[in-house]
Design a protein around this nucleic acid. Structure first.
Lengths: 129, 129
DNA sequence: CGGGATCCACAATGATACTG
DNA sequence: CAGTATCATTGTGGATCCCG
């Protein structure tokens, strides 16, 4: 393995880690999908995702905003509202979400006989409207 | 949003979370790439990934083996060796790794002016050989 | 309503030592 | 060599309260 190969691999790892940093974790995809589904206000999003707390949601929204995936708009009416929306750019994550979804489905079939498959079961999401 | 849409979204979220559970986290991609690069023995892999500890590596290897991405073979010569290798199936993660890599690279360009981009800087990987 | 501040429990990780 | 065991530390998230 040459030094150039090394560099390529390092770059690859970093890029993948970057992606995971942005959309990885327990709540980012649910938050994005919640907004995608029509929830625009903090408490609506909060209510739509079972078991999430306001502190965590707050952090996640900030993170997603910093990464340009969502926008935060102060609507200055009375009373003042705050609205979240997906950015155009956010739709680009479908490029990764799709393959991940497909792989996840395939993988589950492969492990159908195993018990210890997933630790953090994603909760029922019945309130997504 | 109908009840069926709801179910579809729940399934989508779960599938993506499943994928992240399997290949997400700090070390799984580095471990896979290390083996891909030719490291087959525990201590070689350990030495090739900066800052990983044997305890964590041990867990990661077990996790990857349970998920059929790597194989663990006891070579009964004298002295006994243990060899890790990628499975054929493991190569299928390229379907996700590629899009993630590309997205990560694009995303970084977009955030070139932001400082707080990535928290856990992946270490220099100079010992990957 | 949209969060921030604080406190606390538990999980994840590191360091070090040890074993078959 | 290929890990496990133990302990200390850190981090992460939940629960709760509070505030403009």
């Amino acid at each position: 393995m040459t030094a150039e190969d090394e560099k390529r691999f390092q770059a690859k790892i970093r890029a993948i880690q970057d992606t995971m940093f942005v959309i990885g974790g327990k709540w980012k995809i649910p938050v994005i999908l919640s907004i995608y589904c029509g929830n625009r206000r903090f408490n609506d999003i909060l209510a739509s995702i079972p078991r999430i707390t306001n502190r965590v949601l707050s952090k996640e929204l900030k993170h997603l905003e910093e990464n340009l995936l969502i926008s935060r708009t102060v609507v200055s009416e009375y009373p003042v509202r705050i609205e979240y929306a997906l950015t155009e750019y956010c739709l680009s994550i479908d490029k990764i979400a799709k393959p991940m979804e497909e792989w996840g489905i395939d993988h589950k079939k492969r492990l159908v006989n195993k018990v210890k498959f997933r630790q953090n079961e994603y909760p029922d999401c019945r309130q997504l409207h």
